[in-house]
Design a protein around this nucleic acid. Structure first.
Lengths: 246, 246
DNA sequence: CGCGGATTTGAACTGAATCAATCGACGTGG
DNA sequence: CCACGTCGATTGATTCAGTTCAAATCCGCG
């Protein structure tokens, strides 16, 4: 343990809010400098397009804060959200030149960007990094398949309940708030508008609005603003969502 | 180049129909013996359960021939097919103890099974193998997201047309028939029953049947048997399916 | 205060589900 | 060889969940 010379680049990553939760967690403090050297931060406003479908992709990124929606579109404008990513999720499709979907900032977003070539080089050098990315991808695949069950077989009210449950469940993680709150009074800020929720659930705005209304009048939710509410009865919510998971 | 002693185990994999198209393609002829030593073949009949959801999974597998459907189920029996795998696809969820879905033989199926522990050991030793599996997983994730768009936003007739198009497109691959046939006279055998197609598309049997009827009377399909037909007009089929892809 | 976009609410409509026969194709046994 | 039963697929009639179209209402903001 000797006093090392001051290293500003190393310092940056070591101060990063998601240093250990993002893919960077697969790198040691020694190795992190190699990724630090190539990383750049960038901010996005809600609605900003991060990545267009069929775009040539020349970067990967970690989400430092905020929510990013991945969407697909039919020729006539019908739209489907196929993924919703929060900090500290990874963004980008390895081993493919072009993006298979749009990536759009749903909230204020901060990304930590890595140039494609440099990052792919790192992937080859650090097997731990690739394994970590592989595991993240497997988890995303599981989530996508869960959502397929929702899209194909759940009713409108089950869909909306499932969505609210998912957001409520992930909220403590996202905020990184270590206050282990009362599970029957989770305060939630929705990262999506009604129309985005509709695009996530394969419904219309009107149906989403009506179903949220029902959850409210059933006493399961207490609305504070259109994008802000508390879950008053998690158990009933999960029941309404038809959750099976462990 | 010296004459090697006869090696029956090595011979087996080298004669395998999917030797170079499956994940095994990531291994050299030298390396293949390590996987050969742990592999076992097994046959399944249509409807046989290969893997139950929440089962402790103690093997991985390559599909040597046939089609395997991955399904999820709601408490009340509603079902959704979340993946349809053909030879030479890989089967199994790495880095997770329990299966997140059911895997069921849709047709006659032959698997090449690897004990979990031994295969995970191989994964660590052979980085090429893990990378190959990673790429396969990324492709599955892309496919799952394409299907989410279908499930959430396509109409019944678009769904059925998309399904038929997908099967017609993959048929030449599956059969490994190198006869580059007329694209407007592809002969197709459906690996799924009407009720399975319904579970794949988030529809009912009746709706599937009606939509297939429409494709037939529109002259796009010529039915030979309920599970056997020819595609007469691929361009119109793709149009009806609302395909955007490259 | 008044404007404009997002959300909610209402009423009518419709695509797909449900309910209900019927129709093969196929195997079995008389 | 034909009657019978079974199971998947088709076809028809009806219903209904969710969409569509059309107003309100809410709310943030200059």
């Amino acid at each position: 343990m000797q006093s090392a010379p001051f290293d500003s680049t190393k310092l940056r990553c070591n101060m990063c809010a998601i240093r250990h939760r993002a893919v960077c967690g697969a790198l040691s403090d020694e190795e992190i400098s190699s990724i630090n050297a190539i990383a750049k931060r960038r901010l996005y406003k809600p609605g900003d397009m991060i990545l267009n479908a069929d775009d040539h992709v020349d970067f990967f990124a970690n989400i430092v804060s905020g929510a990013v929606k991945l969407t697909k579109m039919l020729g006539d404008g019908r739209q489907q959200i196929v993924g919703l990513q929060f900090a500290p999720d990874f963004l980008g499709r390895a081993y493919k030149e072009r993006s298979p979907y749009f990536a759009e900032a749903a909230t204020d977003v901060e990304l930590c960007l890595f140039p494609r070539k440099a990052f792919e080089g790192l992937l080859k050098e650090k097997p731990g990094l690739e394994m970590r990315l592989f595991q993240d991808t497997l988890n995303e695949l599981d989530a996508a398949r869960d959502w397929m069950l929702l899209l194909g077989r759940k009713t409108a009210s089950e869909k909306v309940a499932s969505f609210v449950e998912m957001i409520a469940r992930r909220t403590p993680m996202i905020g990184c708030s270590h206050t282990d709150e009362d599970p029957d009074n989770v305060h939630v800020f929705l990262p999506l508008s009604r129309s985005e929720i509709a695009d996530y659930l394969g419904l219309t705005i009107e149906t989403v609005s009506r179903q949220i209304g029902k959850l409210k009048s059933a006493g399961i939710l207490r609305l504070h603003a259109s994008r802000e509410f508390s879950v008053r009865d998690m158990a009933t919510l999960r029941e309404a969502a038809n959750i099976d998971e462990e």
